[in-house]
Design a protein around this nucleic acid. Structure first.
Length: 564
RNA sequence: CGGGUAGUGGCGCAGGUUGGUAGCGCGCCUCGUUCGGGACGAGGAGGUCGUGGGUUCAAAUCCCGCCUACCCGACCA
């Protein structure tokens, strides 16, 4: 490709509203342009990178027996209603009506459709199966941001496995896990597999592949000593024990005028770890209390997971007042029996604690949880904090910000049962197919690579996904000899299957160098009169800037060697 | 959804409080001189000032509504 006929509108300045490095560089480099919030046009450069990522993903999926298919993106509401996710997907789903008033949605993910197709499998002899597609997904994110990192329309590789039993699922899951490791290696992404919450996918185990980056939105707890790694929505740690002093025979109400927070109550002589923090949620329409220790923090996803909630939100002030009779700040679970109460494990067996009295400006002290609070269920609700101790080995946990690059789920039989995907086993018994689901966001992977592969001058693509392998910079377009040699090298490299961008623009060398570095081509060949006089061209490595003078006759071999 | 900021040529911005018919840098086009790290000179092209309404002789500027984008939050009970 010749630069003069290639569309790559580079900019000197990044748009003012870009924040993340990948956002700035992809816009500046002429890879992408925004159409509106969360929707981007992929220009030729980005499209080339996307294609390469897709190819790698396809090769690794095919290598573990994946069969590529394509499902419709416009989907009828019926299948989503059957699985219950027409409700539980909530506002994330783009919904629309056709001319007959039929409800439909744009695909967010495709478990329902794949399970529907899998209902044609009727014998265990046809299993296992593994199907995947690379297709557009639509998600009406509450807040698209950071260029390609969080968008509303994107390409996703979603794979689905179908097995006779749990053991088969384990095998498929492990194959995917290994394939993911290979994919991220080839993308040069240092992805850490972590234990994760399954969200509203349902199912048991799930593993996320997380890439550390400052612009990441997901927090992960890592143990440097034993390797424990978990999403903060799932992570656990050692809890420091508190020894309670003996309390009274019954809770004692006391006045706390103006005291509305844990901190204020600490100032009044009640240590935070001797308080009960009471939060009010509405879970699937039901007002519910969630309790954690005063110095702990609740993780809402943990509550959602533990209660298998479809929808969960914090209660509005009016709802709180109506159901408990007091304003936030004076809430508690003592004597509450008409509302479900869920409590964090760290509160189990605690006595002589302080909590709100459900009466404005009053609290209880001397609360014995077992005696005074009707806990309906104990669960893990506490969010691990940076620096807490690893539950496995006791070393320090550190909290790192990461980008979720892949997620694999063991789904179990939920979708198969709903959509009648069942087979007869060897004994002639009917059994539901056991499914797994495995996703990678293609454009997010692209942006993540930029997040982790750039310097002050621009992007540094790994060879495996670079839009071109080589850029030939002709320093002096007016120098016929330079042009002639550049053309010859261009032709020979191209004939050898190497992707070359020939910078034949009549621009100053500085401009050409800067653009080549900005768009991040891994290898640059500089052809100019200075080198030609000595019979050489310069070959520069984008990563380290190292420059080698190479004899013109040797340059093709040299390049082949580099990009192998 | 809540809070904040901002919409003026392709990109970055000024102008606005004090209304008078739009400007700067970069980029783009032409010519010339230059030419190994974002050149210089001369001459050009390009803007319904987000949008609808209002006030006024006159609105980018003042007033009201709406739209859009970005940032923070949507845990501190």
């Amino acid at each position: 490709m010749r630069w003069t006929s290639f569309f790559s509108p580079t900019l000197r300045d990044a748009p003012a509203d870009a924040e993340a490095p990948s956002h700035k560089l992809l816009v500046r480099g002429g890879f992408i342009r925004q159409l509106h919030s969360g929707h981007y046009t992929l220009l030729p450069l980005a499209f080339r990178v996307r294609k390469k990522i897709i190819k790698i993903v396809e090769e690794e999926m095919d290598a573990i027996g994946g069969q590529e298919v394509q499902m419709p993106t416009l989907q009828p509401s019926a299948i989503w209603k059957e699985s219950g996710r027409w409700e539980s997907m909530g506002d994330i789903m783009f919904r629309l009506e056709d001319r007959h008033g039929g409800e439909a949605a744009l695909g967010v993910t495709a478990e329902e459709i794949f399970a529907t197709v899998a209902s044609e499998v009727s014998s265990y002899k046809q299993l296992p199966q593994m199907w995947y597609q690379i297709h557009t997904k639509f998600r009406d994110e509450p807040r698209p941001k950071s260029g390609l990192l969080r968008v509303r329309e994107f390409t996703m590789k979603d794979a689905y496995s179908f097995d006779l039993d749990e053991a088969g699922l384990d095998t498929a899951f492990e194959k995917q896990h290994q394939a993911y490791i290979r994919i991220f290696n080839r993308l040069d992404l240092d992805a850490i597999p972590v234990e994760a919450s399954s969200g509203n996918m349902g199912g048991s185990d799930s593993i996320e592949f997380m890439v550390q980056a400052p612009s990441g939105e997901d927090d992960v707890m890592l143990c440097s000593s034993c390797g424990y790694a978990a999403n903060i929505e799932k992570a656990i740690s050692r809890v420091d024990e508190v020894v309670d002093s003996a309390g009274p025979d019954a809770p004692e109400k006391f006045a706390t005028p103006g005291i509305r927070t844990i901190v204020a109550l600490v100032d009044a002589g009640h240590p935070a770890n001797e308080q009960i923090k009471t939060m009010v949620f509405v879970i699937d329409g039901q007002v519910t209390l969630a309790l954690v220790r005063g110095d702990h923090f609740i993780n809402e996803q943990k509550l959602a997971d533990a209660t298998q909630a479809n929808t969960i939100r914090q209660a509005r002030r009016e709802e709180t007042i109506e159901s408990l009779g007091a304003e936030p700040g004076s809430l508690g679970a003592v004597n509450v029996d008409n509302i479900p109460v869920f409590a964090d494990h760290a509160l189990q067996g605690r006595t002589n604690m302080t909590t709100g009295a459900n009466e404005d400006d009053f609290h209880f002290s001397g609360v014995d949880i077992a005696r005074d609070i009707a806990v309906d269920e104990w669960m893990d609700l506490r969010e691990v904090q940076d620096g807490e101790l690893c539950a496995n080995c006791g070393a320090n946990l550190s909290k790192v910000s990461t980008i979720e690059s892949g997620h694999i789920f063991k789904l179990g039989t939920k979708y198969a049962e709903t959509f009648g995907a069942k087979v007869l086993d060897a004994e002639g018994k009917t059994s539901p197919i056991v499914m797994g689901s495995y996703g990678i966001g293609i454009e997010r992977a692209m942006a993540t690579i930029v997040e982790t592969h750039h310097d002050d001058n621009g992007i540094i693509w790994p060879i495996s996904v670079a839009p071109f392998h080589v850029v030939i910079t002709v320093v002096q377009m007016k120098d016929d000899k330079s042009v002639e040699i550049a053309e010859a090298i261009y032709e020979e490299l191209t004939n050898n299957g190497i992707e070359v961008l020939l910078d034949d623009r009549d621009a100053r060398a500085g401009v050409k160098f800067a653009d080549a570095e900005l768009i991040g081509i891994p290898v640059r060949i500089t052809v100019g009169p200075k080198g030609i006089a000595d019979g050489v061209v310069e070959v520069v490595d984008r990563r380290d800037g190292n420059m080698n003078s190479i004899k013109i006759d040797d340059v093709v071999f040299n390049i082949q060697d580099r990009i192998r």
